[in-house]
Design a protein around this nucleic acid. Sequence first.
DNA 1: CGTCTATTTGAATGTACTCAAAAGCGGTGG
DNA 2: CCACCGCTTTTGAGTACATTCAAATAGACG
Lengths: 194, 194
Amino acid sequence: MDNTVLILTNVSKLIALLPDEEAYFISLLQPKAIKRKDFLLQVGDVCHYETFVCKGCLRSYYIDDEGVEHNTLFAVEDWWTGDLYSLITHNPSRYFIEALEDTEVLQISKSNLELLYLNVPKFERFFRLLLQNAYVAQEQRIVQNLSSNAEERYKAFLQRYPQTGQRIAQKHIASYLGITPEFLSMLRRKTMER
Amino acid sequence: MDNTVLILTNVSKLIALLPDEEAYFISLLQPKAIKRKDFLLQVGDVCHYETFVCKGCLRSYYIDDEGVEHNTLFAVEDWWTGDLYSLITHNPSRYFIEALEDTEVLQISKSNLELLYLNVPKFERFFRLLLQNAYVAQEQRIVQNLSSNAEERYKAFLQRYPQTGQRIAQKHIASYLGITPEFLSMLRRKTMER
DNA sequence: CGTCTATTTGAATGTACTCAAAAGCGGTGG
DNA sequence: CCACCGCTTTTGAGTACATTCAAATAGACG
């Protein structure tokens, strides 16, 4: 399936586009391929793009004062990613975005985004909804971290990202959940036994 | 100080308004007073307003499956609050918003917000920035919960909300941090001793 | 002043981490 | 095709962080 079809399908879930609006939107996008273990964004870079994943898998993470990595987000097919804070403020990012698999993305630059807003205002609505959804998802995550222990959070993760759970190394899932890989391994054994 | 001055000062931090735009904005607001222990929003209500706090203090919380309360946000003077998800989707809220002190707010209804967007488009920018800031703050909170223990999170909380820490009961701060009030009490004693 | 709620204190327990080592697994080169 | 290398996962022992439960103390408010 063509990558432009993927992104148009994604957009059409939130707004309806006319054929020429679709064509214009597509004309503003840049495709990019990222090899496994390569970076889409590194700490200190300014993020210039909103990124849509057509194929593959990206992880966003940061490194804390003690040098430990913490995954904040996984983006597989049909997900948007990037560093919104850096994109908006032009401040350097505090995140890395790394490809866990060979990955294909479509990107729209900040300047093209402004053009798009100007010429197809309903995209304002689209990206506002995208942000609202991201906000609500984050809220959910905070809420869950407050009320669940590691085992419950892992189960919830698997339920929410069923197929994804198989593609991502356990140590990365552990990092996302805020636990050590050793402890996650033990939890898995315990749930197997039941 | 007049409450309308407070909200205009708040808005002017992100967008510049002409006098008649200010007047129009003010005309769309509804003042409301909430007594200590009363609710601005309850679980099951649909949230119809964006709310700006002029005076007092509100806490947002939800109750988990085991009946335990978890604070998600405190809003004091010069803060916006509400349940964005419920406001946007018209779904019933899963949160309570309770006054911890006698509180005065200014509210704008969803329909007046649409009017405002239509007549003073720069408010689209204002509320988008508000959402972006809230998103980034949440991101920060997730990141910190992943990389810090309870003691570090408490210190960070005090640094970030210096005066606020004095106004809010410890059990509420503990709930916000995701720890028990007993444990927070012990942490405080330990830090005092140093 | 009395009552109600919040905070403190302590002991016992559970949850999760650290460190070290072994086992498993995938890729690469001979 | 197999042997080896590097990385991930598993296992276990010892420890640290945080909770539960119960009771005492302190504070706030009518």
